[in-house]
């Protein structure tokens, strides 16, 4: 099986983070090799014939060969056999991909324009960051708040569309420590290409420590809780906080306490303004930004969380 591995090294696939990933790569390596050979036969044959049978005189006579049943049988049958073989091989791996493990660590995933939210059984919530223990079956139960998205981890070779109004699921068992990209692979509007997240694979002990730390967020000072929420609710995917550059929405850097020109007139940015902007974003929209883009967070934040966010925004100087 040496040459499979060789093909795999040449295939430019991202790091293999799971066993399924290496199975997929073996199959892909085979497909690459078979494709390469087929192309050499077809393209090489073509070039050879073009050269060997080039026109020499205007009156060249050509052979009158209308068909050859045996050859035609061969070149239908051999491809068919190869196609069916790779079909079966692909089916086999697909079966494993789609058979959900029992006793897996379950994480709820919600896609929304343009961020990923993760919620653990213990109630811990994160934004755009999925932390999982190594060598453990993890099952993602996924849905969307708005339009279609697709949860894609290239290193694990898995992908699944995320659909509003129903659940879809994915599973994986990461066998390498490290951080891996998550992309959104189904077009979902403006920031589709910015809808990124990270899967962080850590040891079981690190995972447990992380969970405890996250669940104690309630004990942190308000502004620090606000900062965490700002990430978790993915406010950061649309608002910059370190400089004045606009993303999908206006920057929040050095905004608190100043005046904002909105479509509805000029207003002071105070606690009430920020509160309204979070709960009814379309009541007043900053000039130069379209209405209806920011979703409402009504019902998703309690009073303490709102105050935490406001405190955090005050600190952006």
């Amino acid at each position: 099986m040496m040459w499979f591995n060789y093909a795999q090294a040449q295939s430019f696939m991202p790091t293999e983070g799971t066993k399924i990933a290496s199975q997929v790569d073996n199959l892909y390596g085979f497909l690459l090799a078979a494709s390469f050979i087929s192309c050499v036969i077809v393209i090489g044959g073509m070039i050879f014939f073009v050269w060997k049978y080039r026109r020499r005189t205007e009156t060249d006579k050509t052979a009158y060969i209308t068909h050859n049943t045996f050859l035609e049988f061969l070149w239908s049958f051999i491809p068919l056999v190869i196609f069916l073989a790779v079909f079966a091989w692909g089916w086999n791996i697909y079966h494993d991909m789609r058979t959900m493990p029992k006793d897996a660590l379950e994480v709820q995933v919600t896609g929304k324009q343009w961020a990923w939210e993760f919620e653990y059984k213990s109630g811990v919530k994160t934004g755009n960051l999925l932390v999982v223990p190594v060598n453990k079956d993890v099952k993602l139960i996924m849905t969307s708040k708005d339009v279609l998205h697709s949860f894609y981890i290239p290193s694990f070779r898995i992908k699944q569309d995320v659909i509003p109004g129903m659940y879809t699921s994915l599973w994986f068992n990461a066998d390498k420590l490290g951080e891996f990209h998550v992309f959104c692979a189904e077009f979902c509007g403006t920031q589709h290409s910015g809808m990124l997240a990270t899967v962080k694979v850590v040891t079981q002990a690190e995972y447990e420590a992380w969970l405890i730390e996250e669940s104690q967020v309630g004990m942190l000072p308000l502004a620090q809780r606000g900062q965490k929420l700002f990430q978790a609710k993915a406010c950061a995917s649309c608002h910059s906080v370190a400089d004045a550059s606009a993303k999908v929405g206006p920057s929040l850097w050095q905004k608190f306490g100043t005046k904002e020109l909105t479509e509805e007139g000029e207003f002071a940015i105070d606690e009430n303004f920020v509160r309204e902007s979070i709960l009814s974003p379309n009541a007043k929209t900053t000039k130069g930004f379209p209405k209806g883009v920011m979703p409402t967070f009504q019902g998703q934040l309690n009073e303490t969380e709102l105050s935490a966010l406001i405190e955090y925004i005050k600190t952006l100087k």
């Binding site: 196609f83 079909f87 070779r157």
Partner: peptide, 23 residues
Amino acid sequence: FAIGGVTGIMLAVVAVDVHFHDT
């Protein structure tokens, strides 16, 4: 078309397409 064709077969292999779909 030969290249388009063989890559089409790769995409038809369902486990491989899971990785390649929408890329």
